[in-house]
C-alpha cells in the first residue's frame, strides 16, 4: 500500500503545481493590468516597482473614465450587446426548431449551408458586405446609390435577425441538436388538444428550452460584447467601448496626437480602460459561471 500512497501524493502535488501554473498564466494579464492601472505615473520610472505600485492611485481610472465617456459608452455597449443577443436568440431558436422538426425538399441542403456558414471566414465577405451596407439597396428597389447603413445598428441587427451574425451558424447547430433530442410526445399532446403549430412552439417548446436558450443568450452576449471585427467594420463613429479604447490606443501609438495626456502615461490609462471594459463581463461571469461551464453538456454535442 505504501508506494501507492506515495505515488498518489506525488501525483496530487504535480497536479496542484500544473493547475496553479496554468491558472497563473491565465490570470497573469489581468493581474498585470490591475497592477498598471493602480500605479502612479511616477512609479513607471521606478525600477524597484514591478508588481506592487509604491503609490496607489485611482487617477488612471478617473482619466480613463473621462476619456471613454464611460457611463454613456458602457450603456451603449450594453444596450447594443443585449439587443443583438436577444435577436440572435430569437432567430436561432426559431430556425433551429424548424430544422429539428420539419423536413422539406432541400432541407438537408439548407442545413449543410448552416454548417458551411460556420466555416466561411468572415474575411471572405468582409469587403463585399462593407460595400453592400454602404450602398444598401436590396434587389435594386431603392433609388441609385442606395442608403448608407454604416455607422448604424442596422447591419448587425439584420445579420443577427437571420442567424448569420458572429457564430450564428453555431447557435443554429446547437439549438437544432437540442430540439431534436427533445421528445415529440409533448407536441403531439398539444396538437391533440387542438393547439396550432405556432402556439405549440411558443407555449410548450420554448419554456422547455430555457436551458439552451440561456446558453445561446449568454454566449451571444459575451461574444458580441467582446467583438471588434464587426463593430470596427460597420459601427465606426458609434460610442462603443471597444471603439473608444481603440481611439485611446491610437493616441498611445502616436503620443504627440494628444497633448492633454502625455506620452507613455497613456499606457496606464489604457490598462485602466481595459479593466473598465471587461468589468461588466467579469461580473456577469462571476454570477453565472455555472451556465457557461455546464453549457457544453447541455448542447447535445457530446454523447
Amino acid at each position: 500500500m505504501r508506494p501507492e500512497r506515495m505515488a498518489a501524493r506525488l501525483w496530487g502535488f504535480t497536479r496542484f503545481v500544473l493547475i496553479t501554473g496554468i491558472g497563473f498564466i491565465i490570470l497573469y494579464p489581468l493581474l498585470r493590468q490591475l497592477s498598471a492601472a493602480l500605479m502612479h505615473p511616477e512609479d513607471m520610472y521606478d525600477l524597484t516597482v514591478n508588481w506592487i505600485p509604491r503609490t496607489f492611485t485611482t487617477l488612471n481610472f478617473r482619466v480613463a473614465w473621462e476619456m471613454l465617456d464611460y457611463p454613456k459608452a458602457v450603456l451603449t455597449t450594453l444596450g447594443f450587446a443585449l439587443l443583438l443577443s436577444t435577436l440572435e436568440l430569437a432567430s436561432t431558436m426559431i430556425i433551429g426548431y424548424g430544422f429539428a422538426r420539419w423536413r422539406y425538399p432541400g432541407s438537408d441542403l439548407v442545413f449543410a449551408l448552416v454548417v458551411l456558414s460556420i466555416i466561411i471566414p468572415p474575411q471572405m465577405v468582409m469587403v463585399p458586405l462593407f460595400l453592400n451596407f454602404r450602398y444598401f439597396n436590396p434587389l435594386g428597389l431603392l433609388p441609385e446609390p442606395g442608403i448608407n447603413l454604416l455607422g448604424s445598428f442596422w447591419p448587425m441587427v439584420l445579420m443577427a435577425l437571420t442567424g448569420t451574425a458572429k457564430r450564428g451558424g453555431l447557435f443554429i447547430f446547437i439549438t437544432r441538436n437540442f430540439f431534436r433530442g427533445m421528445s415529440t410526445s409533448l407536441e403531439e399532446a398539444a396538437y391533440v388538444d387542438g393547439a396550432g403549430h405556432l402556439r405549440t412552439f411558443f407555449t410548450i417548446m420554448l419554456p422547455n428550452a430555457i436551458p439552451i436558450a440561456m446558453i445561446v443568450f449568454l454566449f451571444s452576449f459575451v461574444w458580441n460584447w467582446n467583438d471588434l471585427f464587426y463593430t470596427d467594420l460597420f459601427m465606426q463613429g458609434k460610442n462603443l467601448l471597444q471603439l473608444a479604447l481603440m481611439r485611446i490606443n491610437a493616441q498611445y501609438n502616436y503620443p504627440w496626437a494628444n497633448k492633454a495626456v502625455e506620452g507613455t502615461y497613456i499606457q496606464l490609462v489604457n490598462n485602466a480602460g481595459m479593466l473598465l471594459y471587461v468589468l461588466p463581463v467579469l461580473v456577469l461571469y462571476a454570477f453565472l459561471q455555472r451556465y457557461f461551464i455546464e453549457s457544453i453538456e447541455k448542447t447535445g454535442l457530446v454523447g
Partner: peptide
Amino acid sequence: LGLLFTLPFILGFGAF
C-alpha cells in the same frame, strides 16, 4: 412550416 421557420436563415444566407 419547415420552410417558414428556416426562412430567416435562407434569406440571411443569401444576402449576407
